Amino acid sequence: TEIRININGVTIHVRDASEELKKLIEHLLRLGADEKEIREVLHRWEK
């Protein structure tokens, strides 16, 4: 699944996002995570 996240005008594009990762990101956004925090989570997730 491919997702695009727009945070304050900055688009983060994620290829091959699992449903689990998608739910995690949606949850973090609801909690008010910023772009830097989302990128950090994505970076750690890929490892």
Results as ranks from 00 to 15, higher is better:
T1W: 12
E2H: 10
E2G: 06
E2T: 11
E2A: 09
E2L: 07
E2R: 05
I3A: 03
I3Q: 02
I3W: 11
R4M: 11
R4H: 12
R4A: 12
R4Q: 12
R4V: 13
I5L: 07
I5K: 01
I5F: 04
N6P: 06
N6L: 11
N6M: 12
N6G: 05
N6F: 13
N6Q: 11
I7M: 09
I7P: 02
I7S: 04
N8V: 04
N8K: 07
N8T: 04
N8I: 03
N8M: 06
G9S: 06
G9F: 03
G9R: 04
V10L: 10
V10A: 08
V10S: 07
V10D: 05
V10T: 12
V10M: 08
V10H: 11
T11F: 13
T11I: 11
T11W: 04
I12P: 00
I12F: 03
I12R: 01
I12E: 01
H13W: 07
V14H: 04
V14C: 05
V14R: 01
R15E: 06
R15L: 12
R15G: 06
R15N: 09
R15S: 08
D16N: 14
D16W: 15
A17K: 02
A17T: 10
A17R: 03
A17F: 06
S18L: 04
S18P: 14
E19T: 10
E19N: 09
E19H: 10
E20H: 04
L21V: 05
K22P: 01
K22L: 14
K22R: 12
K22C: 03
K23P: 01
K23S: 12
K23F: 14
L24G: 01
I25T: 01
I25M: 08
I25N: 00
E26R: 15
H27G: 08
H27L: 14
H27T: 15
H27F: 15
L28G: 00
L28P: 00
L29C: 04
L29Y: 11
R30F: 12
L31P: 00
L31S: 07
G32L: 02
G32F: 04
A33Y: 07
A33D: 01
D34M: 07
D34I: 04
E35M: 08
K36M: 11
K36N: 09
K36T: 10
K36Q: 11
K36Y: 12
E37I: 12
E37F: 14
E37M: 13
E37C: 09
I38N: 00
R39W: 06
R39D: 15
R39Y: 05
R39S: 03
E40P: 00
E40R: 14
E40Q: 13
V41F: 15
L42Y: 01
L42F: 03
L42V: 11
L42R: 00
L42M: 05
L42D: 00
H43F: 12
H43M: 14
H43I: 12
H43G: 05
R44E: 12
R44H: 09
R44Y: 09
R44F: 09
R44I: 08
W45H: 05
W45Y: 06
W45G: 02
W45S: 02
W45A: 03
W45M: 04
E46I: 15
E46A: 15
E46H: 15
E46L: 15
K47Y: 13
K47R: 14
K47P: 11
K47A: 15
